[in-house]
């Protein structure tokens, strides 16, 4: 590797840059939880705001403290405002259960609201535990990491190819250039 020492150095440097980027953007996950209380009343609700979910996926679990189901919805900012205004809205996720899981993968959603209200029939106060995880996978960061690693690989291939060409040159010099017709020579 004498002639390719600089390639080795550059490759290691590229990997050194790529690895922390890859680690930072792929292994990091933000976790959180909320204790929500849905007040007494048929049309009451409780909500919890989660910021900076753009480009990430949101998943988690919920469970009610009573044996009665709750309705859990995940709304983006615009739909949440519609919900507050009592106009028609579309939830990213909706479930009615005593406990369950939720998952939303919406890169364009910057802020989301986890809304909990009573399930059918129950109008007494209801406690709901919600825990969530924002999986922080940033495609730009991941691509940068892969780019650095791939670039290093390309550099190695280029260096090997250059050395091979040098070898080929030596081979070529030892051979005639053009097609040769031998005069009738017998072995």
């Amino acid at each position: 590797m004498k002639s390719g020492w600089w390639v080795t150095v550059v490759w290691i440097a590229m990997l050194a840059v790529a690895m922390p980027i890859g680690w930072f953007y792929s292994s990091d996950a933000i976790e959180g939880s909320a204790h929500l209380t849905v007040p007494e009343g048929a049309s009451t609700f409780a909500s919890y705001r989660v910021d900076d979910v753009e480009g990430f996926s949101l998943s988690g679990e919920f469970s009610s403290s009573t044996d009665s189901p709750v309705e859990l919805m995940i709304l983006d900012e615009g739909e949440y405002l519609k919900f507050l205004a009592n106009s028609s809205y579309v939830a990213e996720f909706r479930a009615v259960a005593i406990s369950g899981e939720f998952s939303v993968d919406k890169p364009s959603m910057e802020t989301c609201h986890i809304v909990v209200r009573h399930g059918a029939g129950l109008i007494v106060p209801q406690e709901v535990e919600v825990s969530y995880t924002i999986s922080a996978v940033n495609p730009v960061g991941m691509l940068s990491a892969y780019g650095f690693a791939f670039g290093g690989g390309l550099l190695i291939v280029y260096d090997g190819w250059k050395r091979h060409k040098k070898h080929e040159e030596i081979v070529r010099e030892s051979k005639p250039l053009d097609v040769i017709f031998f005069d009738s020579e017998s072995r």
């Binding site: 190695i156 291939v157 190819w161």
Partner: peptide, 16 residues
């Protein structure tokens, strides 16, 4: 000419 083929895989091996 030799036992050394030319291609990306070979070039990768060549480096090492």
């Amino acid at each position: 000419d030799s036992r050394r083929p030319l291609g990306p895989r070979a070039a990768f091996k060549e480096f090492f």
